[in-house]
Amino acid sequence: MTHVTARRAATRERLIDAAIDVFAEKGVLGASVEEICEAAGFTRGAFYSNFDDKDDLCVAMLQRLHDDEGSALQDAVTSVGDVADDADLDTLLLAAIELFYASRWDDPKRVLTGQELRLHAARSPKMAQAYRDFHARTTHGVATMLETALSARGYELGTNGPVAMSVLHAVYDYGALGALIGSDTIEGDVRVQLLMEVLRALIHPQDADARALDQVSPPPA
């Protein structure tokens, strides 16, 4: 049973990998099950043994994304924690962007597939619920990490964490697609520059009184 389960898990992963490539080229609606199976080297039977339909595959893809991001975020948290306490704001912002990057797909095919999944969620009620759940989990986790890292160095967000993350997601998505299209208005990495500017606008020094309260130990129970 363990061998069969492992083999089935490997089949699912290959189908998801193949779907990422096919979705990036043709979109979710434009990609057929047959094309996904052909890219993965499997039959339709293998597909329907693992997924009810393309929506079911898309939900599994979102879960894969969430799991991958969770692992990457753990590594990125270390990079923010390693920033010296007396580092300037730009150094801290670059570390924060690394943390944010760890929660997003960066490979061109995955960037396109991520956009396709979002468009599909706008069309499919089943995908919409899964996408909302995925986005909420990811947004909350990254926001908490960013707020903690900023507070430890005397800074805070000018709005609540989830709102700030939604703004950053929108800016990142715009920049990620812009980088693939080729921007002639901004030189260098469009995404980094845009995120730096937005973060500068969102972050400000923490109120001295509030910072003092943060540092006060709670009274003994």
Rank of each mutant, 00 (worst) to 15 (best):
M1N: 09
H3C: 01
V4Q: 14
R7T: 13
R7I: 06
R8H: 05
A9F: 01
R14V: 00
D17E: 15
A19E: 06
D21S: 10
V22F: 04
V22P: 03
A24L: 08
V28G: 05
G30K: 09
V33I: 15
E38D: 13
E38C: 00
A39Q: 15
A39H: 06
R44S: 15
G45E: 13
Y48W: 02
N50C: 15
F51M: 04
F51K: 02
F51L: 04
D52I: 11
D56H: 11
L62R: 04
Q63A: 14
L65S: 08
A72H: 05
D75A: 13
V83K: 10
V83Y: 07
A84C: 06
D85F: 03
D86N: 15
A87T: 08
L89I: 11
D90F: 01
D90M: 07
D90V: 08
T91I: 00
L92D: 08
L94S: 10
A95H: 07
E98T: 13
L99A: 09
F100C: 04
Y101N: 15
A102I: 07
D107R: 14
D107L: 06
P108Q: 05
V111K: 04
L112G: 02
E116T: 03
S124N: 12
S124W: 03
P125Q: 02
A128F: 11
Q129T: 14
A130N: 01
A130K: 02
Y131V: 00
H135R: 12
A136V: 06
R137D: 13
T138G: 02
H140L: 08
T144Q: 14
T144N: 02
M145H: 08
L146P: 03
S151P: 00
A152D: 15
A152W: 09
Y155A: 05
N160V: 06
P162V: 01
P162L: 04
P162I: 04
V163E: 09
L168T: 02
A170Q: 09
Y172F: 14
Y174R: 05
A176R: 07
A176V: 05
G178T: 07
L180K: 02
I181K: 12
S183K: 00
T185K: 12
I186H: 12
R191D: 08
R191G: 00
V192G: 02
Q193E: 14
L194N: 10
V198N: 01
L199A: 10
P205T: 05
D207G: 05
D209R: 12
R211I: 00
V216L: 15
V216K: 08
V216M: 14
S217T: 12
S217A: 15
P220W: 08
